[in-house]
Design a binder for these strands. Structure first.
Lengths: 347, 347
DNA sequence: CTGTTAGCGCATTCAC
DNA sequence: GTGAATGCGCTAACAG
């Protein structure tokens, strides 16, 4: 029972057939007699046979390894955990398995794990790039015809598919929403200017201000770490200004949390004394601060869509050099004070 | 460049050496001339060679696949996400990659993913078992000499290593703590009685009650879903009792959250009008409700320890049939009202 | 329908 | 030091 690995030849012997017959039942080929099939299956169960995919896709023409790589920049952030869950769902039901790695925003780590994944013969990759990732990083992948889907953060000029939330429209809508509530001095708080996401959301902010007929004041944009602490810091600086804002759209919900913290520390009630809106990057936010308007994108469905897209490309065989950008729906939830307005959907 | 896969033979040709020479440099053998080595490396870079681990460990004696499987019962729960991050850390730096799968508490899913992982030749497995997992489920693994480390939830009589928090001592200490605060009617809220964790924590609760000189009242144990909603439900039922409790230790922090919700809905202030303690299963809790005493275990370090244990066993070669149970440190954080007491460590 | 014959890409003896 | 064989477990063509 413990004498080495049991192989097709063992079970062939036990079932009194030949190896290739076994191979056929393994692949569920209809070319095999029902009686033989069950005999083979019985033998497999008997001997505790386990299929060796390594050997299989060594022989197979290309890398139908049934494994897809997933790398995220911060698994600690529930958004990405949820995303991974979404990916896992469709990946599992398609009979694939998921290589999941966390880069913690380290570009070196990212290179390492991707290299490692390649060595293991992944047949596709879903990646939420670490900061400072360049398009060139995925060059070898596409050259090897390995489909890549970039999520959450768009990548400058990479020839890969991508799924990102509609940052610009979302933020813009948030600003318009605040304007419709009567706010005029609306700040943009949090986030570091070195990411595409920041730029997109900032652009949306400017769009929204424009659309509402307000002029752009650079001072109203105060950047900080995209975290709770960062938010507290940002609101602190905003409130130190001579002409204080009365509302803010935050880079993400972690920042929005921090902003709420900061407001309360100043004896102000978020949503009443100061309106705050944030992108739902950290899903936990949805439950933790109901009195907060947020722009949200469901990470799980985003993950599912990414996986679906990837599988489609894998099955298609040829990786289309075209970059497919799919926007996800954004929804503004209203829950401060009044009745919950049914989510307004966009894009 | 895109003509199939580039193999050792290709780069051997390009470097003007033989395949086995290439193989030697691949393994960093000192038996190869420095000049040749660099020539080979150059050729590898030139042709974009990627090492094929599948082929490699097909040849190698057994499954030194450099891949370890991680399966958790709920990746949506930040605790497990953090755990996975901890695992990933040590796994990555040991040159392994991580197969991560989420079972969503489905025993069938769990069987599937573990089977799938076996097919891919994992050299070890870390698993937080889904509910209703039986010891027998890991029988084939240990029979195949694949080390298994069970985390978070202990498994009845499985011959595998495990790392669990010291549930009993932790809960017991929590009860004693509440007793020292003057509470006498202390409830145990939340959780389903069908898990070992529940039993352990309940046992700790009873220990604590005993130690404090209180008799056990079954009515003070009200079970519910181990979630926020479940907590709200549980406190509702507790407050409906004729002789209300004045404090509670909760199955986990999600429940504790719900309990706080329920208290506030009844115009009571958690920590002041009613003391509540919960296990930190969901890490997010630590930041979201500071005014809550919790019994916590750091999921990341737990993940790291699990990975270390697993790697040790993998390197040891022979999987010890002995079950190694390692308790992690528990710490009670005090933050309701008074100054933060430095964490009291146990076990 | 089933058995036979070749390799997939690599690592491991051995000779040279 | 390096090159020529051999086989890991499996699938792909063919042959029976």
């Amino acid at each position: 029972m413990s004498k080495g690995r049991v192989t097709v030849i063992d079970i062939a012997k036990a079932a009194g057939v030949s190896k290739s017959t076994v191979s056929l039942v393994l692949q569920g080929s209809p070319l095999v007699n029902e009686g033989t099939r069950s005999k083979v299956n019985a033998a497999m169960r008997e001997l505790g046979y386990v299929y060796n995919r390594g050997a299989a896709n060594l022989r197979q023409t290309s890398a139908k390894s049934k494994i897809i790589g997933v790398v995220v920049n911060d698994l600690t952030n529930s958004f990405f955990a949820e995303l991974a869950v979404g990916v896992d769902m469709v990946v599992q039901s398609a009979g694939f398995v998921q290589f999941l790695s966390n880069t913690s925003e380290s570009i070196d780590r990212q290179r390492e794990v991707i290299a490692s994944m390649r060595e293991h013969g992944i047949s596709g990759l879903i990646v939420s790039p670490a900061r400072a990732t360049e398009a060139a990083d995925f060059k070898p992948l596409v050259a090897a015809d390995i489909p890549v889907v970039v999520v959450v953060r768009s990548l400058p000029g990479a020839k890969v598919s991508s799924i990102v939330s509609d940052n610009q429209d979302g933020t813009s809508a948030a600003v318009e929403h605040l304007a419709s509530l009567g706010h005029a001095r609306i700040a943009f708080l949090g986030g570091f200017p070195d990411t595409a996401v920041f730029e997109e959301r900032l652009a949306g902010y400017m769009d929204g201000m424009n659309a509402a007929g307000f002029s752009f004041h650079e001072e109203l944009v105060v950047s900080s770490a995209p975290s709770r602490a960062g938010g507290a810091d940002a609101i602190g600086r905003a409130m130190a200004m001579s002409n204080r804002p009365t509302a803010a759209v935050c880079f993400n919900d972690a920042v929005a949390f921090g902003v709420c913290d900061g407001l309360r520390a100043r004896h102000m009630e978020p949503g009443r004394d100061f309106a705050v809106v944030g992108f739902d990057d950290v899903i936990e936010a949805q439950t933790a601060v109901p009195a907060l308007t947020t722009i949200s994108v469901d990470p799980q469905s985003m993950g599912r869509r990414a996986a679906q897209l990837l599988l489609k490309q894998i099955n298609a065989g040829k990786a289309e050099p075209e970059s497919v950008t799919t926007a996800v729906r954004l929804v503004i939830r209203e829950s401060c004070g009044a009745a919950q307005k049914t989510g307004r959907k966009m894009a």
